[in-house]
Amino acid sequence: MTDRPGQDEAYNFAYLDEQTKRMIRRAILKGIAIPGCQIPFGGREMPLPYGWGTGGIQVTASILGPDDCLKVIDQGADDTTNAVSIRRFFERTAGIRSTLITEEADVIQTRHRIPETPLKAGQTLVYQVPIPEPLRFIEPSETATRRMHALEDYGVMHLKLYEDIARYGHVSTAYAYPVMVNQRYVMDPSPIPKFDNPKLHMSPALQLFGAGREKRLYALPPYTRVESLDFEDFPFEVQKWDEQCALCGATDSFLDEVITDDEGSRLFVCSDTDYCQKRQKRLTQSSSEVRKEELAS
């Protein structure tokens, strides 16, 4: 194991010891067998604080192989502190290759986004999860929420949606929008924007969710039915923008609002940096007609 070129020999491959990784892999297998069900695991202390992705890192460490290529994004971006640190962490402790390009990655660890580029079979998306329990807002007791899951006692989830519609005329939840997995478990998809919820459904990629503080993980095996909770007369809807990306002109991606000066000038750009850059590259290569056409649409 120590013959890997980039790996720091002071660490076991991917930091965690092999026993721990086996234990976590067993929990992951259980999670895959029961899609959407929260599985407890013996979380370890990691060399970074809770809230920085300790759950996701332990899951990633447990599934990484020596030949895997890793991508890490934070709010869609590869170049934020958190994403860079985690990528370098695995480069150093596992000596694996890393990438910024979605298509090239075998494992993508993510905080709060699903890449715009559709995922493929064989890829694994690892989510960092702050609060894994979707019922926690109404029920503080873990014993009680486990009972509720066991008995499919989910009326309160719609109660929250009902309150939103009664108060605001629409469902105001925009992030961590709860989903029903495989018509059985209600699941918190981590704080991804609800814009990303449709990508959870029938994804060819394996999706794993790790919560470090709560020491829970759960999984969506490839091609799992994932439905966002809604009402027949108030169907689930994703966010829409009147603007397009100021950099690549995309109209189909999740946009971040950026304030550019003290006068409050602002512009909208893709939150997925890889997607945006690919489009910018293509735009400079392609003819001006194509560009006009894309901008026009």
């Binding site: 006692d153 989910y154 009326g155 309160v156 009902y162 009402f231």
Partner: peptide, 11 residues
């Protein structure tokens, strides 16, 4: 709430 628990999905 009781109706929602019984599966009523029409606001």
């Amino acid at each position: 709430e009781r109706l929602m628990a019984q599966g009523e999905r029409h606001f």
